[in-house]
Amino acid sequence: MTISHDTTGAGPAVLLLHSTVCDRRMWDGQVAALAEAGHQVVRADLRGFGESPAADRPYNDADDLVELLAGLGVERLALVGASGGGAVALEFAARFPERVGALALLCTAAAGLEPGDGLRAFWGKENELLEAGDVAGATDLNVATWLGPDAGDDARETVRQMQRHAFEVQLAAGDVEGVEYESSPEAITAPTLLVTGAHDFPEFGRVSDRLAGLIPGARRVDLEWAGHLPAVERPEETAALLVDFLAESGWSK
Rank of each mutant, 00 (worst) to 15 (best):
I3N: 11
S4N: 13
G11S: 03
A13H: 10
V14D: 03
L17H: 06
L17W: 01
L17G: 12
S19R: 10
T20K: 00
R25Y: 01
W27G: 01
W27M: 06
G29E: 01
V31D: 03
V31Y: 08
A32I: 09
L34S: 07
A35N: 10
G38E: 12
G38W: 11
Q40D: 10
V42Y: 09
V42I: 15
A44I: 08
D45F: 12
D45K: 06
D45W: 13
L46Q: 12
R47N: 10
G48T: 13
G48N: 07
G48C: 10
F49V: 06
G50C: 06
E51D: 15
A54Q: 09
A55P: 13
P58L: 05
Y59R: 05
D64S: 06
D64M: 04
L65M: 08
R76F: 03
L77N: 00
L79W: 08
L79P: 12
A82C: 14
G85A: 04
L90R: 11
E91K: 09
E91M: 08
F92V: 07
F92H: 05
A93S: 12
F96N: 11
E98F: 10
E98A: 15
E98W: 11
R99G: 00
G101L: 11
A102I: 09
A104M: 05
L106W: 05
L106C: 01
C107A: 14
A109P: 01
G116S: 05
D117Q: 13
R120I: 02
R120H: 07
E126H: 12
E126V: 04
E131H: 14
A132C: 05
A138S: 15
T139P: 09
T139H: 11
L141Q: 13
L141I: 14
L141C: 12
N142R: 13
V143Q: 09
T145W: 10
P149V: 05
A151N: 07
D153H: 09
E157G: 06
M162I: 07
M162Q: 15
Q163G: 00
Q163V: 01
F167E: 09
Q170E: 11
A172G: 12
A172Y: 03
V176G: 00
E182N: 02
E182P: 02
L193E: 03
L193Q: 04
L194M: 05
G197P: 11
A198T: 04
A198F: 03
P202L: 07
F204P: 00
G205W: 13
R206V: 02
V207I: 07
L211T: 10
L211C: 04
A212F: 00
L214R: 15
I215G: 08
I215D: 08
I215Q: 06
A218K: 03
R220T: 14
V221L: 14
G227K: 05
H228Y: 06
L229Y: 00
L229C: 04
R234I: 02
T238W: 02
T238G: 04
A239N: 06
L241N: 03
L241T: 03
L242Q: 03
L242A: 02
V243S: 01
V243K: 01
F245W: 00
F245G: 00
S249R: 01
S249E: 00
W251S: 00
K253Q: 11
